[in-house]
């Protein structure tokens, strides 16, 4: 056997394949970042500069005027009270919807994972496949139901609708999470004499902060970004921010103030974006949750 000379490890100074990969990713990144950049620079320009200049050029003179106007005085066609009305409406819709839908779905998912009873899986399967049905199919009957319940065109009405349509994905999320916890833990707790609620609150909930975070992220972004349910069920004076934003930007009267529009757009996107940038991996888990098989 001959002894091979000891070679030095080849140094990769230039690897064309990898350069290509980075190039493609960088180009894609520009495509993705461009709108955000345009939004920000436009919102910081004065109207004359918007009209004369280039949408990609940075503002010559930075002004926060459009932001103030978008928040406080922009007109939606009927009123000129800015986006703040929509912001507070969205908050009033968001908080109860998130809390109620998660409370119901978590208990539901827990019941489905540990306290199986006949028929439960059937309902659950219909619920999951039902979530693929276009909302339009269920809209009109839901209008009738909410009207009969006396909650059509109110905050309660839109919260009710968000709770219903949040149920499939959240129940799936919680059911899958609880199903991944060891069954023996549940058995041990039963031998230890804990009941349905005792096991849920003392054993399961303390083990589940990550999934609650995922659920909150999912619901906050989903409900905040909703347009359809808000415009139908909330009633004119309770319109959420997305609806108001659309009314401000697409209201036909007067001169279009693109800088104000862009500021309003950023403001509307700010809440989910903040959630997104702060939550990182949880957001990915949340959106991937829908793709996880039940």
């Amino acid at each position: 056997m001959s002894i091979e000379p000891i070679g030095t490890r080849p140094r990769r100074t230039f690897d064309p394949t990898r350069m290509m990969i980075y190039l493609v990713l960088a180009v894609a990144a520009i495509y993705y970042l461009l709108p955000l950049y345009v939004m920000i620079v436009t919102s910081l320009k004065g109207m004359p500069e918007v009209r004369l200049g280039n949408i990609f050029s940075p503002p010559v003179e930075i002004t926060f005027e459009p932001w103030a106007k978008a928040w406080d005085t922009a007109c939606t066609g009927l009123y000129c009270e800015g986006l703040k009305v929509g912001f507070w409406n969205s908050m009033q819709i968001l908080i109860p919807s998130v809390v109620i839908s998660i409370a119901i779905a978590s208990v539901n998912g827990y019941a489905l994972s540990f306290w199986r009873f006949r028929g439960a899986e059937v309902f659950f399967t219909i619920l999951i496949f039902g979530s693929f049905i276009p909302y339009q199919v269920m809209l009109y009957p839901l209008v009738i139901i909410t009207r009969e319940l006396g909650i059509f065109g109110s905050l309660t009405g839109v919260i009710f609708i968000h709770t219903i349509f949040g149920m499939p994905i959240l129940t799936l999320l919680f059911r899958n999470y609880f199903a991944s916890l060891p069954q023996e833990l549940f058995k041990a707790a039963r031998v230890d004499g804990a009941g349905f609620w005792g096991i849920f609150f003392k054993i399961m909930v303390p083990m589940s902060p990550p999934i609650f975070v995922v659920a909150i992220i999912l619901q906050v972004t989903g409900i905040w970004n909703d347009f359809l349910f808000g415009v139908i069920f909330a009633g004119t004076k309770n319109f959420p921010m997305t609806v108001q934003l659309n009314n401000i930007v697409n209201s036909s009267q007067g001169v279009k103030e693109y800088n104000v529009n862009m500021a309003a757009t950023i403001l509307t996107g700010a809440v989910p974006l903040a959630i997104y940038f702060l939550s990182g991996k949880y957001f990915v888990r949340g959106i991937a949750a829908g793709a996880v098989k039940g």
């Binding site: 955000l36 909703d226 997305t242 990182g280 957001f283």
Partner: peptide, 13 residues
């Protein structure tokens, strides 16, 4: 983060 952030935004935005 860059590729995914648009998904956090509303279709309206």
């Amino acid at each position: 983060t860059i590729f995914l952030y648009p998904f956090a935004l509303s279709f309206i935005v």
